[in-house]
Design a protein around this nucleic acid. Sequence first.
DNA 1: TGCGATTATGAGAAAGATTCTCAATTTTTT
DNA 2: AAAAAATTGAGAATCTTTCTCATAATCGCA
Lengths: 140, 140
Amino acid sequence: METQDLKKAGLKVTHPRMKILEILERAPEHHLTAEDIYRKLLEEGEQIGLATIYRVLTQFEAAGLVNRLHFEGGQAVFELDRGTHHDHMVCSRTGRVVEFYDEIIEKRQQEIAKAHGFRIRDHSLILYGEFIDDESASES
Amino acid sequence: METQDLKKAGLKVTHPRMKILEILERAPEHHLTAEDIYRKLLEEGEQIGLATIYRVLTQFEAAGLVNRLHFEGGQAVFELDRGTHHDHMVCSRTGRVVEFYDEIIEKRQQEIAKAHGFRIRDHSLILYGEFIDDESASES
DNA sequence: TGCGATTATGAGAAAGATTCTCAATTTTTT
DNA sequence: AAAAAATTGAGAATCTTTCTCATAATCGCA
């Protein structure tokens, strides 16, 4: 079923592209850097060059298959686009990322944009902080 | 009056720090990359190394004097912290940045965080798109 | 099903942004 | 004004991402 996604996106079905899609689909964290993907592939014996990973991710982004997010730290993270828009909460202690969606915020953004004569193409809302549950998990 | 800011922040009053603060205060754009600051200083005959600029900006950030923002494009931009929090709207055509603040969004963020057991330390909301007024200004 | 044209990949070089190193300079203290 | 402490500048180093180009894989068609 992944091959369909690639074809629909107008991309040829190649081994690297399939494998990268697979990794993104299986990743429990859902948010991976290009390096993360590179290492995960290596662990599975797939020796795919970093350059290819960046290239493919950029193509996936253009095709709407993945989103590129700019968290603090300058390193881009990628997530599979599962069709439903959402924003992010990032735990600075554990790196855990939680997604959320809020109708009220979405609506306000549109209203604010309108008031400023601005047409929103995309937006990024990220909350940085800590999950109180993770409090105990102290790491040296 | 700038020297006060530096002293209050526990930073020694040095020539580069003063000049960088000045540039940030005077910049009509309000949002500058380290390079921008470097070039503006050069134009004024101040030959301050890029390394110093990054170092000082990082110190200013730690002291709460400036904010570092991660727009699309991987290059960090810096703005003077004028005490009032705000979010950003970035025009992808002209690069124009407009600040806004919305009580409702701020409140919702807190509510959402609370519901998730999350303590917000900081947040970043950026709207990407175009200003309709800027529409005519086409650039090849 | 195999060939050829086209497109993708891999490795390393290159580019861009940011940080580090360390000797020389400036600030602050005395 | 001199000594101690902190800061700066220049370039090297690092990190992330993109580019180049020769080799390899994919797809359409015979």
